[in-house]
Amino acid sequence: MHVDPEPHLFWITSRAAGIVALSAASVSVSLGLAMSLRLRGLRRFDLKVLHETLSLCVLVAIAVHGAALLGDGFLHPSLLDVSVPFVSGYKTLWTTMGIVSGWGLGLLGLSYYARRRIGPARWRRLHSFTAFAWVLGLAHSLGEGTDAGTAWFLVMIGVVALPAVALLLLRVGLPAREAEGGARKALRPVAD
């Protein structure tokens, strides 16, 4: 049975952008945590450049995810529905999680460019909440995502999100000061 895709093109675009936003955000969070934990064998310069690039790509993908929904012929959401928490009547809690996650990733990510004004130590603390925003995005996609029940989506999310979850648990488990040097020791190969 074939379905005419024409009325669903905005919806397809929004779904694809959401999937990319979550995947890229997961990889970016992993890279950020890897930098924070100073894992051996990874060049800090490479991690930093990729982390920044992917973070900016995530913001573009989130913007496309929300903007494409505005053209969807089924939901007909308003700009407020897709940008202000608790306004949309469609799966309000899950939608709100996605909106808060989007704003969180955007503001916390872009705060990098104001880190001198904010102060390095304060910015570092602030930036660590990005992981929380990412977790909200993960919950939003699993709770509301159309493709959340499909095998390919779950496999893809497993591949990109599980390493981030593992690194996050490792980072949370280590006190702030130990995280810098301690993780390096903890993850040092036996032969080293």
């Binding site: 074939h2 379905v3 895709p5 669903h8 397809i12 675009t13 779904r15 694809a16 952008a17 999937i19 990319v20 995947s23 890229a24 993908a61 493709d147 499909t150 390919w152």
Partner: peptide, 14 residues
């Protein structure tokens, strides 16, 4: 990744 995701979603819909 975006093009691949778009193609998968489009394909399963069609």
């Amino acid at each position: 990744a975006f093009l691949a995701a778009w193609a998968i979603v489009f394909g399963q819909l069609v």
